[in-house]
Nucleic acid binder design. Structure first.
Lengths: 187, 187
DNA sequence: CCAATTTCTAAACAATCGTTTAGAAATAAC
DNA sequence: GTTATTTCTAAACGATTGTTTAGAAATTGG
């Protein structure tokens, strides 16, 4: 029929995702994406429609990568200990070489202005709610906690996670460890 | 000698600061600054040299505004209670109308890529260290805490504050209150 | 080999970015 | 009122933004 693509979408999106993760949405230009993805603008637009499209696919890709540690959390049955481990796992997941990159989606939430693209905003809040629900499920493994406590502590931990994400870009590993230990002291 | 300025630097910088606070550095364009500051590009460049210059002055202005609550913290002598009050004060300080804006400097830290302007990077870390020191001073008011504990808890609280700042942009007031209460349970 | 179809190269698009500049308007000193 | 000096208006600057497009290159089926 016709010529074959010299790339696979999955491959190039992973590279785009890493660029967005490192630099944020605005700072990442199409020119940078061309270079990093190894294909030119025509191909990018043919495959993903727009810069926004590349970003939305990058978020999907990020979620899959995060699956490494979220699935571990889902599988855990030791309540708070599993949650604490998730926080520790996130530090390693977030770190590339020496400097932390935070969480792509939390970074996006921080970068977002009030009138940003609704699709992205929705993706952010959907993700946040999913993680919160995950936390709540693990908290509920402790049968001594009533529903209200589980919800309260879930809210607390999702915000603590947002904090850890931001902090991973600014503070060193011992400080992050210390933060996690103190965060979980009273649960 | 010559014509008089129709504005004062202080006045227009406050407006610029609010724009940066709401939208971040990259999203805020010179065009938007012109409109918000009420003076045109010539005057902006004459007074502040560059967009970066406007931003650096905006940071100074932000610090002064934040002085409302940091000076209250400095004046407090009831240890952890004063610190907790600072966290509560920050929520109100951060909130404009319905939606939170976080902390201008934390927002900047989150937006910053690794190779951002060194002057801004320095301003961010200087600020962070100052607040951390403030926290440590108040923690040390409790004479039963040894130096190591004070340092640990200072590190913990500065990261918690970064978290609160990010969270103030995403979560509602009851959730933020709940976060503060749980954060201080651990001390 | 020819024709059909798709991918790729490379250039251009209009719009906007931060920044600069020429000249008009306004003020102060003489 | 004239002159000197500064502020302001408004247009333009080159560079870069995200996006589009014309045409060459490559692959497949007949």
């Amino acid at each position: 029929m016709a010529r074959k693509k010299a790339y696979t979408e999955e491959e190039v999106i992973e590279k785009a995702m890493n660029l967005f993760w490192r630099n944020g949405y605005e700072t990442t230009s199409m020119q940078m994406l061309e270079k990093e993805m190894g294909i030119n603008k025509f191909s990018i637009y043919a495959s993903f429609g727009s810069k926004n499209g590349v970003f939305l696919e990058s978020i999907k890709c990020y979620r899959e990568r995060l699956g490494q540690i979220t699935s571990k959390l889902k599988a855990s049955s030791n309540g708070i200990e599993g949650l604490k481990q998730y926080f520790y796992d996130f530090i390693d997941f977030s770190r590339e070489t020496t400097v932390g990159r935070g969480c792509l989606i939390t970074n996006t939430a921080n970068e977002l202005s009030q009138d940003a693209d609704p699709k992205i905003r929705k993706e952010v809040s959907k993700f946040t709610e999913e993680i919160r629900q995950l936390f709540i499920n693990n908290l509920a493994q402790d049968l001594t906690k009533d529903a209200a406590t589980v919800n309260e502590q879930g809210d607390y931990l999702i915000i603590a996670m947002v904090g850890l994400s931001s902090a991973s870009r600014l503070f060193d590993k011992p400080q992050l460890r210390n933060y996690i230990e103190n965060t979980f002291k009273n649960l």
